[in-house]
Design a protein around this nucleic acid. Structure first.
Ligand code: SF4
Ligand code: SF4
Lengths: 156, 156
DNA sequence: TCTATTTAGGACAAAAAAGTCTTTTATTAT
DNA sequence: ATAATAAAAGACTTTTTTGTCCTAAATAGA
């Protein structure tokens, strides 16, 4: 549904948001460790998010990444996906049926529109403040298994 | 959402179904032409679908691909996706948040469940008979632009 | 039987995505 | 100032996905 790049970006953002709410800045090593992503790859993803203004970064000792608490309500999945994958998910049909248009719809257009509407609603509804709070309250978890091992194991 | 491989497979299946309803067998060259997919790649996708019993193939002159009309109601997107991409779409979280479990959900689990439910409903509801009929009636279209040019152009 | 046609199958190549490594720049504390 | 720390940036490699090409096997029709 989204690229791995984007998956890491989402997980990292939620983690950084949580730490920022607790007043901490968190560095690359810790992030890649906690979310189970390759360090050298993560650095670029976080750079992209910084460049897009989603994260704040600070070099040097005591440096790391953070998110301004007042911005957290504005930053949602949609923004992160746009920053990392670019709008393809939205502009292209998820089923690859070439062209979208209301007066020339492909055979499954109606069905697919429902899914797309839900997806759009979700990515815009899910903001970082909410997600980070969920983590802090303990109601929800940010599972940090390395490299999706659990999911891959299922296949074997 | 699905791989390109799967996109081609879906488009091809709908086309073959339509032709089969009209009593025609359709060959590789025509298929790849109509759906705008590379011929040599398409051959393998159709082979996979044949091996999974989704398509019937016939070699030699007047050969080609077809789908038994009585099977069309049984063949849905779910089956095609499983045959070509394998169940990853279902087993892994579309947002890559590692682990799925009802008692240890990740922060956006509830939101995502809605999308997933819709998606599941769609891929199972969309069967080939229905889709092929849509094409024949002229109510819906199977857009055959080559290599998703329209979508890619939007980015430029 | 012979030839033309069409799928099957496998080896190979190119492109894209994911991941690694090394050097540079900024920041903090001594 | 200097040393240590951490992000920025870019070159490079590996893996996966996508795509190409060539040969073999099956089938229909002359
Ligand atoms: S018309 Fe609908 S189903 Fe068809 S390609 Fe466009 S969005 Fe997808
Ligand atoms: S708990 Fe829900 S949102 Fe989280 S990884 Fe699993 S399916 Fe995805």
């Amino acid at each position: 549904m989204v690229s791995r790049r984007c998956e890491y970006g989402i997980r990292a953002s939620i983690l950084i948001a949580r730490e920022s709410l607790k007043g901490n800045r968190i560095n690359l090593r810790l992030i890649s460790d906690k979310i189970g992503s390759p360090l050298g790859y993560t650095t670029k993803i976080l750079q992209s998010l910084s460049n897009e203004g989603i994260l704040l970064s600070r070099r040097g000792p005591k440096g790391g990444f953070e998110i301004a608490p007042e911005a957290m309500e504005t930053i949602n999945f949609h923004g992160i996906i746009m920053a990392l994958d670019g709008g393809q998910i939205y502009s292209s049909c998820g089923l690859g049926l070439s062209e979208c248009s209301e007066d020339h719809p492909c055979p499954i257009h109606e069905h697919f529109n429902l899914v797309r509407a839900d997806l759009n609603a979700m990515v815009k509804k899910a903001n970082l403040l909410q997600l980070a709070h969920g983590l802090i309250n303990g109601k929800t978890f940010l599972n940090t298994s390395k490299k999706n091992t659990l999911i891959k194991d299922k296949k074997v």
